[in-house]
Simulated scan of single mutants.
Amino acid sequence: MNRRKTRSLNVVQHILLIIMCFIAIFPFYWMVISSFKNESEIFTASFIPLKPTLENYVYAFSNMPIVKMMFNSFVIAILMTASQLISSLLAGYALVRWQFKGKILIYTLLSLTWLIPIQAIMIPNYILINQMGLNEKLLGIVLPFGVSTFAILSLYQSFKAFPIALIEAARLDGESDFGILLKVILPNIKSSVTSLGILLFINGWNEYLWPILITKKMENAPIQIGLRSFVSSDVNMWGSLMAATTISCLPILIIYLVLQRQIVDSFVKFGIK
């Protein structure tokens, strides 16, 4: 009887998993097949293109500098990830390693800044970037995101869980604080750093609202801004939009296929925290 209940429960669980997987994958599948449909077929309910065409991809490449914008997205995501990881490593280590007045206050303020929506500081940031002459430049997009409170607090927990005895032993051996961070701590928490880096890269790649304020020319913007050019008040080029969106999803899809275990672990790890 117990075996029968267990089998029934497993069947129900697998059915639910299949349904959830279908719900998650179907929008991506519909986007891909829609990119191969012509204008007369784009709004039909067919699950496969009846007359496949590459016109949408040709139109997307001819009307938008996709390669340049993809390069911009890569540079933005990499620079954001690198700057946020470096700053969070240094800040998290300082908060755990050193005892100083105002430490609790700084940690509290960092936690509170995480609650401030990005829309509340967009205007001051835009004025500052404009005064610095960084409009239409990738540095103007990256600079306001050079530090991530989420990254600092995440690595703070990893540093806090690290054995103090190992740090003190390295200190007795004559290692500096920077040497302890690089040679002792970092090799032991590299999985946490890698997981965090993956999340930061995905966030940087998907950044949309801030770049659209800084860039006006398409060749200076990330790929997400270019997708907007296919939707207007007059004409909506849905087929070309699906083609350009499919192309923009390929890098993240490839990264996911290569690093799927690390990505799943990162969502589980930081979701629990």
Rank of each mutant, 00 (worst) to 15 (best):
Q119E: 15
S240M: 03
A243T: 01
I118R: 10
L95H: 10
S158Y: 14
K51N: 13
I86E: 03
I123G: 06
I152K: 04
S111Y: 09
F71A: 13
F230S: 08
G140D: 02
P117H: 08
V231C: 02
Y156C: 09
V12R: 06
I78K: 01
I189E: 05
L257I: 06
S148M: 04
W238L: 08
A244P: 05
P49L: 15
A170G: 14
T246S: 13
C21F: 09
K68W: 02
F159P: 03
R3I: 08
L209F: 14
T53W: 05
G174L: 03
S191W: 12
R261D: 03
N72Q: 03
D265P: 00
K217G: 00
I123K: 14
S148I: 05
L115A: 15
T6I: 12
I189A: 11
F22C: 14
F71K: 08
I255H: 10
C21L: 13
Q262G: 00
F178E: 11
F145W: 08
I141F: 00
M1R: 08
V12D: 07
S40V: 10
L186Y: 06
S191H: 08
I66V: 13
A77T: 02
V264Q: 14
I18A: 15
P144T: 09
S266D: 03
S62L: 00
I202N: 08
M132H: 03
K103P: 00
S248C: 11
F100P: 01
I223Q: 05
K160S: 09
E175D: 13
Q13F: 05
A120E: 04
N2S: 13
T215H: 01
S40C: 06
F100A: 09
G204T: 01
Y126H: 08
V184K: 14
E219K: 00
M64Y: 12
G197F: 02
V268W: 02
E219A: 04
S176A: 10
V32H: 12
L213A: 12
L95S: 04
G133R: 04
K273Y: 06
C21G: 13
I247L: 10
T6Y: 08
I225K: 00
N188V: 06
M70N: 07
E168W: 05
L112W: 10
I185Q: 04
A24K: 13
T215Q: 05
I272G: 10
A161D: 15
T245W: 01
I164H: 13
I167Q: 11
I106D: 04
P222W: 11
W210V: 02
F270T: 11
S8Q: 08
L182G: 09
